[in-house]
């Protein structure tokens, strides 16, 4: 792939990774927040051995989505406040390439947080989250809500009080991800036969594709003045 499109996506992703590698402010804040949220849920829901299996996948996904809110907001605020979003818009790069570049960066950061949470929660609660299917579910789900999160964060940075508005905008819209991902993860963790939970994973994948296509089509309207 040597098209200008792929080159632009790659340039944006590696720019974000490099800047993040230097400051580490995004991933560390997200990871810490996710850990705290897992801890808070443990206390609040009194996650004992029985409650565990039912609640654990919900705790995982809600923590991930909350942490990602923090990250998406920061990632797009950085672009917006330094005016570099304008600089991106000035270049002859396709708007979809800008979207994909920002999406891949956000996706990688959130996935990194998930990769911290999965083994940790496995160790803390004695639930088997380190399963290749659980991992696949995590990857697909994180990708899906990173797509809509990237678009809505771009939208929210253009509003007043964006820190408050991004969660309000994102939470209802990413409910389809939460519903399907939680049920798939729950099924996988509880050791139920694949036939019982695979429909949720399939639904999750379908929703991810629907949202991705919509985001690719609509992102330029979120950017254009």
């Amino acid at each position: 792939m040597k098209s200008p499109f792929a080159a632009a996506v790659r340039a944006i992703v590696s720019k974000d990774l490099r800047a993040e590698w230097r400051s580490r402010e995004l991933v560390s804040a997200m990871a810490l927040f996710a850990l705290l949220s897992v801890l808070v849920f443990s206390f609040a829901l009194e996650l004992d051995k029985n409650a565990r299996e039912e609640a654990i996948s919900g705790v995982l996904w809600v923590s991930l989505i909350f942490a990602s809110l923090l990250g998406f907001n920061r990632s797009l605020s950085l672009e917006h406040d330094q005016g570099s979003l304008d600089a991106l818009l000035l270049t002859p790069v396709s708007r979809s390439a800008i979207f994909l570049g920002k999406l891949l960066g956000n996706f990688m950061f959130t996935l990194l947080v998930a990769l911290v949470l999965l083994p940790l929660m496995t160790a803390l609660y004695g639930v088997q989250l380190l399963d290749s299917w659980a991992l696949l579910t995590t990857i697909v789900g994180v990708f899906g809500f990173s797509a809509i999160g990237t678009l809505l964060a771009t939208l929210a940075v253009q509003t007043r009080s964006r820190e408050a508005l991004l969660p309000i905008a994102l939470l209802p819209v990413c409910l389809p991800f939460l519903l399907t991902a939680v049920r798939a993860t729950k099924g996988i963790v509880s050791g139920a036969p694949q036939s019982e939970w695979q429909v949720w994973l399939q639904l999750l994948a379908a929703i991810t594709i629907i949202y991705l296509v919509l985001c690719l089509l609509l992102y330029r309207f979120v950017l254009e003045e």
Binding site: L155, Q158, T159, R160, I168, Y211
Partner: peptide
């Protein structure tokens, strides 16, 4: 409605809320 109230520039408000209306319905 809350998001809509938070965008001051009218052109920008119309454009962004058109997008959000589509996502709201789909979700």
């Amino acid at each position: 409605l809350m998001l809509r109230a938070g965008i001051e520039n009218p052109q920008r408000r119309r454009r962004l809320m058109s997008v959000y209306g589509i996502f709201a319905f789909v979700s």
